[in-house]
């Protein structure tokens, strides 16, 4: 028996899906992104380094930082938790690696590929759209290119990565993905009309 997969917004995993209904920007659902949630029971520098070695990607140590290596990106969430973005097929390998390296569960990896819906927004207006639902800024404490932030957007929790000057990747909780897309679709930009 084989079960079909369905992404938060409909369709198969493992690809991208254009979302033409979102105005002002080029948007898509990133069905190709998998994820593992890494938590650490006692986050000493040595242990965090060991986790990095186990997954093949060092873990960032401070707020907002993202480390990219070997097709994976490690996002700092809290002082003892990280989100590691990977290919969807790589999730199981990362889980095994952490489990075998940390049998006492002092570090733990949870399946997370299905927890979030990842959207890509690209365009000069993307920041202005997102600013209708949250604080994003270039100023002090802002979000430079290559960094990420976990923040409420449009009333729900989201992880935001700034990939490039006008390219954003946003992860929202799967069950709220439809709401979030409809929120984006309903936004207006009076200055841009």
């Amino acid at each position: 028996m084989m079960l079909d997969t369905i992404s938060p917004l409909g369709g198969d995993f493992g690809s991208t899906n254009a979302l033409a209904s979102i105005p002002w920007v080029t948007a898509s659902e990133r069905r190709d992104l998998g994820a593992v949630l890494i938590t650490c029971a006692a986050p000493s520098p040595e242990r965090i380094k060991s986790i990095g070695l186990a997954i093949g990607c060092s873990l960032p140590r401070s707020h907002g930082l993202v480390v990219e290596c070997d097709g994976k990106r490690a996002i700092w969430l809290t002082p003892r938790s990280w989100l590691v973005l990977c290919e969807t097929d790589d999730e199981a390998r990362l889980l095994r690696s952490i489990a075998s390296n940390f049998p006492d569960r002092s570090a733990h990896a949870s399946r997370y590929s299905d927890a979030l819906c990842w959207l890509s927004l690209e365009g000069a207006k993307a920041e202005e759209l997102l600013n209708q639902g949250c604080f994003l800024s270039f100023s002090q404490g802002g979000l430079p290119v290559g960094n990420s932030k976990r923040t409420p957007v449009a009333g729900i929790s989201a992880v935001i990565l700034r990939e490039a000057e006008t390219v954003w990747t946003i992860g929202v909780e799967r069950s709220r993905a439809s709401y979030f897309v409809e929120w984006l679709e309903g936004l207006t930009l009076s200055g841009g009309e």
Partner: peptide
């Protein structure tokens, strides 16, 4: 306490 908490509700159906 050496413990970590991972809420994973939405990952699972």
């Amino acid at each position: 306490m050496q413990v970590a908490i991972a809420p994973v509700t939405s990952n699972w159906a």
